[in-house]
Simulated assay, not measured.
Amino acid sequence: MDLQDSFLLKGSLTTQEVAKRIQKFNPTLKAIRDWKEPDIRKEFHVLVKNNIGLEGFYTSAGSKFFRELKLKDAFCVQLLKKHHVDVFGTTHMTELAGFVTTAHPNRGYSYLGGFPKNPISEMPPGGSSTGSAIAVKAGFCHAALGTETRGSIMKPGLACEVYAFKPSRGSISRKGIIPLSSLLDSPGIFACNMQVLRKIYSFISSPDSEDELSVKFYSGKRKFKQTDNVLVSHRIGIIACSNSSRSEVSTIQNLLEETGLQTVLIPGKEIDFCYKK
């Protein structure tokens, strides 16, 4: 059997099998920094990115300077535990979320974890929430939390082929998370399937009076009007840049309009968002 094939799940695993799987494959994949034995009494087992506060573990943000930093549970972790979710460890990430250079973060580099390995291909696993995406794909957990400032959830999710969700800023509190950008940071979720993703999101999407973005998001939140379970009277903007594929834009537009939503095409300019060396 090819080594990569052995990482793929062949059905659901028991808690004991998950622990054995981590012991066997994590030294190669380098997805998890620290973990404890999963609690067999809990339904969901979740890991968190190493910039998210988790009591009993170091919250280092992938940096040697914070390698022994301990934080209290982040607000989102508190909510997970409140819903009896087993949050049993932390995942490697690009150092300080890859802010300083473009040379290594795209390959998932972590000072503490080295270069994590994509469990399904030779494609670089992305950054900066690399370890969380790999852990879900490798069957180490049901779901894992990550953070995104600019593609840090979407890139690893795409590279590792897992369900990845970066919600609107403010829908998940940032309290207790080491920041990269107070303007752009957003916690998000990787999950083994859509049902788990929705469940975990329902647990942690809650207003937090100590997070300004959370207050703003929930104070201005509008409830959707529904008619026969179809969303109506809401317009979705689609930003189409000059080099966007017309067929892809048209496909997205048709899919949205089939649900009853209205779409508006918004011309966009190409902007270089890459961090410079």
Rank of each mutant, 00 (worst) to 15 (best):
Q195F: 04
R222S: 06
V46N: 07
H83R: 12
A143N: 14
V100A: 11
S244Y: 15
Y201I: 06
S173K: 15
V77A: 00
S6D: 06
P119Y: 10
E68Y: 06
S129N: 09
P124W: 14
A191Y: 13
S219Y: 01
I189M: 01
G131Q: 05
L3K: 09
S110H: 02
K276C: 07
K36W: 04
A191W: 15
L69F: 10
N229G: 05
Y109V: 00
E212Q: 15
F99V: 03
A97T: 01
A133R: 03
L184N: 07
M154D: 09
I52Q: 00
D5F: 08
T14H: 14
N118E: 01
E55R: 09
E122H: 15
E161Q: 15
N26Y: 07
G11R: 14
K166S: 06
K70A: 04
T59E: 03
S250M: 13
E122R: 12
F115A: 03
K36M: 08
G260E: 11
L69V: 04
K64H: 04
C274A: 11
K216V: 01
D272M: 02
S168Q: 09
D73C: 11
I236W: 05
F217G: 08
Y201W: 10
P187N: 10
H142V: 06
Q195P: 05
D228R: 15
L213H: 13
K216A: 08
I236E: 07
Y109P: 00
A61F: 09
S205F: 02
P125S: 06
T90K: 02
H92L: 05
Q4T: 09
H92Y: 11
I189L: 06
W35P: 00
T101I: 01
S128T: 07
M154I: 15
E270S: 00
P267H: 03
L80W: 08
E210R: 07
T147C: 07
G151H: 06
G89N: 15
S6K: 09
I204S: 05
G126T: 04
S152T: 04
H234S: 04
T130G: 00
R235K: 12
D208L: 03
V136Q: 11
H83K: 08
E68V: 02
E248F: 12
F99T: 02
Q195E: 15
P125H: 13
D2S: 11
F203E: 08
K155Y: 06
F44N: 10
I238E: 13
I236F: 09
F140I: 06
G89A: 14
T94G: 00
S202L: 05
V87H: 03
G188D: 07
E270R: 00
Q253A: 13
P167N: 05
P125L: 02
N118L: 04
L29F: 14
G131Y: 05
I32R: 09
L71W: 13
T251L: 14
I238P: 11
I120A: 03
I200E: 00
L9E: 12
L183M: 04
V100F: 10
I153L: 10
S171Y: 12
G89S: 10
N254Y: 05
S152W: 08
T102F: 01
L29S: 11
